[in-house]
Amino acid sequence: MQFPPVEAPKQSHGHAVADALAGSTRGLALGRLGSLAAWIASVQGADVPAPFARPRAIVVAGNHGIAARGLSAWTAEAGSAQAEQLRSGAGPAHAAARLAGSSLRFIGDYLDTPTGAIDIEPAVSAQVWEAALAAGAEVADNEIDSGADILVPGDIGVGNTTIAAAVYGTFTRTEPVKAIGRGSGINDKVWKVKIAAVRDAMFRVRDFRDDTERVCAELTGPDFAFLVGLTAQAATRRTPVLVGEVYPTVAAYVAERLAPGTKGWLLAGQTTAEPAHTGCLEALDLKPVLALDMKTGQGAGALAALPQLNLAAELAGEVLAGGASSSD
């Protein structure tokens, strides 16, 4: 699908907020919170940033045929168990969402969708990937039309870091050994299995590695396509997206490839040691709010940063409105 052109955030508002904070005599040096406040003003198109009133987390579950290779510390059934926990109202994402003042929507449509083992065969057909991309865009539209003012994508899926590494390695020409990390906490033996899987997957797509959608259909799955569509469409609708873990971050990197300008609407909630994560953050020019190294998934790492954004907006609003008390 073709995404509409992405308009850049209103940088003039962000610059004005940054200048006002820098020149304030109220005695508050906000540091990084000040730059976050300026970013919020830019994406809100506001003279004074406001805390996000209706954040919405969207957690999508998927499965990967490559997980059968035993390249994770988790069994292939762990994804289904996490999904059931989330459906019951429990799990890391719900806990983080409650504390962050966010609502949460779970997408389980792709949990039972068959996907191929990417080291020897395509993950899904181009048609399946395209349909999931459009579904993600549709959910973005629905959520924004319902009043969401920031989206927080999350993921559930065994083998997600393997998929992320294969996509990152392919598009950035990074060797498999430098593209993968320890993911769920794998040992050296499993790490070698993971390297082989990513190497063979990247080799399969080498002749068309600049064809973004074809590569992604071969290497990812409908849950990944959904996240790409969600992120890209949010950007076209001038709605910010807060990413936290490696899978949504690599999806955001792909969204930028399909809808240039998307990165202007992105903020990184946290970072991990996964090379695909740090590499995509660098490519997107994103500086994480927190350094948590959370590999929990489900968007929990991004949700952990959301209160910091609202604090930044609240404090900046106090200074700009003249409501802060002065100090020496």
Rank of each mutant, 00 (worst) to 15 (best):
M1R: 04
A8N: 08
H15A: 14
V17I: 15
D19K: 14
L33I: 08
A41M: 06
D47H: 06
P49D: 06
R54W: 00
P55A: 03
G62M: 06
N63Q: 14
G65P: 05
I66Q: 12
A67E: 09
L71T: 05
A76D: 12
A81Y: 14
R87Y: 09
L99I: 14
G101N: 07
S103V: 11
F106D: 06
L111P: 02
I118Y: 04
A123F: 00
V124D: 07
E130P: 01
A132F: 01
G136C: 01
A137V: 04
A140M: 02
I144N: 01
S146K: 11
L151C: 08
V152W: 00
T170Y: 08
A179T: 04
I186A: 01
V190G: 05
W191N: 09
R199E: 15
D200E: 14
M202N: 04
F208V: 13
F208Y: 15
T212R: 01
A217W: 07
G229F: 00
T231A: 02
T231D: 06
A232P: 00
A235C: 03
G244W: 03
A251V: 10
Y253K: 08
R257P: 07
L266N: 05
A273G: 13
T278N: 05
L284Y: 02
D293P: 02
L311A: 15
A312D: 02
L315F: 09
G317R: 05
E318G: 13
V319Q: 12
L320Y: 05
